[in-house]
Simulated assay, not measured.
Amino acid sequence: MALLAAILMTASPSQAAAQIPAQAAAAQQLTTFAAQDGEVGLVTPKRSAAAAPTTCNWTGASVKGSPTYAVEAPRALTALAWTGTVNASCTGEPVSISTRIEVTDPQGIPHPIASGASVPVNSGYVCSHQGSSNCAGSWTAKFTLTFSAKPGSKWPGGGGCTPSGAIQTCTFGGPVGNIPAAKVPEHTVCKNSANVALLADVPCYNLPPSGDTPLMSLRSIKSIRDFHFEGGAQADATKGLFYSHLTNNDLQKVWEAGMTSSGSWKLNSTGYYEKTFTYTGAGIQSPRYGGGAPATKVTIVAEQYGAAGYSEVVTMYPATG
């Protein structure tokens, strides 16, 4: 199956709009990426002993990504807005400064977010998670600072800085983080399968043996509604069925109950992990094998592995028996 970073691409923009209203979105700010401050010194020929040395430095280099996730389950990523800043300055001999900040998306395409003089103008960049654009995955940041001194000056280079005559270009940056394709509720990871205690009101999740968190995606929701909902396009009497009035948010609550359940994950015959846990009021047992009785348990099925710590829910259904 495709990696989680590509999950949302399985539904067309019109399908996504039908399942997750664009106007029902909420932003969640990421932790900023901050680079170390730095300093370089200029070597000026024939400088008088009394002249102050020329040094250039930069401080506060950082970028910030603010993702927006749909409010309705599966709380899919809809957009990702980037901003950046840095403050460069020089003392002593006159030095011209130019700055540029860019972020590189999971497909390896760079996007400028700020540029200008010693303090860049923030143009920003918004990645829209729809159509052929995929904002989910690993992002990196890059800062480029160019210092131009008078002819005949020399720069020492090193430390990420490359001199070329009187001009020195300094580049630095690094990974900003991994943006999941769906918003993950705040949680901790249970230390063992029997530990479901709350830590500071934050639930712990009992993850599959792979350690990946199986998320509900648009594809997960569609499969569940098609095969395991009353009136579903592929539903039949052999399957446990969720009640037709359940919303996507209701399914998310069932998923969260499964993640906090102390029940063990098992590898099934099709190579997926599955777990059956207690949950009432969500649907009925198989009409053929369980007589359509109210279900008291639900089974969740998930990929073994995904991408960057997140896998995908394959299906979920009211259990029979």
Rank of each mutant, 00 (worst) to 15 (best):
G306S: 03
K142V: 07
Y125V: 00
W155M: 08
C127F: 06
S311C: 02
D226K: 15
P163D: 03
G211H: 02
E303Q: 14
S311Q: 00
A233Q: 13
G173Y: 09
L267D: 06
V103R: 01
G321M: 03
Q234N: 15
G263W: 04
V184H: 09
C127T: 00
T280Y: 11
V86E: 08
A52H: 05
A18Q: 10
S66P: 01
V103T: 14
G131V: 09
E186A: 12
S261F: 01
G158Q: 13
P208N: 02
S223Q: 13
V63E: 06
V313D: 00
R47D: 02
Q19W: 06
Q252R: 08
V254F: 09
G309D: 00
Q36M: 08
T270C: 07
E102Y: 07
S220W: 01
S118Y: 01
I101H: 03
D226G: 03
S96R: 15
A197G: 13
E186P: 04
C190N: 00
T278P: 01
T78A: 09
A114F: 09
T146W: 02
P209W: 04
V176P: 10
Y243E: 05
W255K: 02
A61P: 04
E312D: 04
H245Y: 14
T238R: 11
C190Q: 02
V95C: 10
W155G: 09
I284M: 07
W255V: 04
G157W: 15
D236F: 06
I284A: 00
